[in-house]
Amino acid sequence: MTSVIKVVKNVGPKLVPYFKTVAIYFVIFVPQDKPSIFSTILKCLPIISLMLFVVLHGMSLGEEYKYSRRILTGLIFCCIGDAFLIWQQYFDVGMLAFIIGHIYYISAFGFKPVNLPLAAVLYFLATLVVLYLLPGLHGIFIVGVPIYIMVITTMLWRAIARVQFFEDLWTWSKLCTCAGGILFTLSDLMIGIDRFKYNIEYAQVLIMSTYYAAQVGIAVSIVDAKTAITANKNK
């Protein structure tokens, strides 16, 4: 298991562009009701920085980088989704891009261990959220939003299920995906409430801060993913 000190030393310098672009986003802070090419670039820069981080950490077509490739592809589609969500008329296209991004995250996290009790609880809560948002949905969102909620719930399930605290089998990779999955779901829940139910005060700040934190958690999870695969091979 990768130590905290090793993670910080390895990850810190490579994440400097990410932290700088996040700071720039919140300092300039273009309101979401004023979409532009500039605000689109500003919003996407932190995710592009995370994509660069994943590539710099190591990338090839080998089995040891399968996890990193899937996380990178997920980030790419999320970045595309970010760009479309800036423009309200393309919200559905952005949502589709995020669905694809989550599918890649799910494929990276895998389905072992299964943890069916956790799945039952999460899908039950997801159903309650669907029923809560349903009266405010219209058009394609009547179908699209429930599908999206179930996909992100699956991502959350797989992110949390990877962490096995009681079996002492957790790693920083798994812990980061768990935190990232929870924050991602929280961010999207706020988007759903703000768009389809009622306006949340300081919604953009809350949504983007939890979203960026979620994405860095998922991206950082590649740090010891290669080590884990290599260890399994050696066994």
Rank of each mutant, 00 (worst) to 15 (best):
S3C: 00
V4A: 13
I5W: 09
K9M: 10
V16N: 11
F19R: 08
K20S: 13
F26E: 08
V27D: 04
V30D: 06
P31E: 06
P31C: 05
Q32N: 10
Q32W: 06
P35E: 04
F38H: 06
T40V: 10
T40R: 11
C44A: 15
C44I: 09
L45K: 01
I48Q: 05
S49T: 11
L50E: 03
M51G: 14
L52A: 12
V54A: 04
V54R: 01
L56A: 07
M59K: 08
M59R: 13
E64A: 10
Y65W: 12
K66D: 13
Y67M: 13
S68G: 07
R69W: 07
L72Q: 01
T73Q: 07
L75V: 05
I76R: 00
C79F: 01
I80S: 08
I80R: 05
F84Y: 15
I86D: 00
Q88M: 09
V93S: 02
M95N: 05
L96R: 04
L96Y: 08
A97Y: 00
F98E: 01
G101F: 09
Y104N: 14
Y104F: 15
I106P: 02
A108L: 10
K112R: 13
V114N: 09
A119V: 02
A120G: 05
L122A: 08
L122K: 11
Y123H: 10
L125P: 03
A126L: 05
A126P: 00
T127L: 13
V129N: 01
V129P: 00
Y132S: 12
Y132M: 14
L133H: 02
L137S: 03
L137V: 06
H138F: 09
V143W: 12
Y148P: 03
M150R: 06
M150L: 15
V151L: 06
V151N: 02
V151Q: 03
V151H: 03
I152G: 04
T153L: 05
T153Y: 00
T154H: 08
L156F: 06
I160N: 03
R162M: 11
Q164G: 07
Q164M: 11
Q164W: 01
F165V: 13
E167T: 12
D168E: 14
L169D: 10
W170P: 00
T171F: 03
W172H: 10
W172M: 14
K174H: 12
C176S: 14
T177V: 13
D188E: 10
D188Q: 09
L189I: 03
L189H: 00
G192E: 04
I193G: 00
D194R: 01
F196H: 08
K197W: 04
K197C: 09
N199W: 04
E201G: 07
A203G: 07
V205E: 11
L206K: 13
M208Y: 02
T210D: 07
T210F: 07
A214T: 04
A214P: 00
Q215N: 09
V216S: 08
A219W: 00
V220D: 01
V220K: 01
D224I: 09
A225K: 11
A228Y: 08
A228D: 12
I229T: 13
N234L: 13
N234I: 13
K235D: 08
K235E: 05
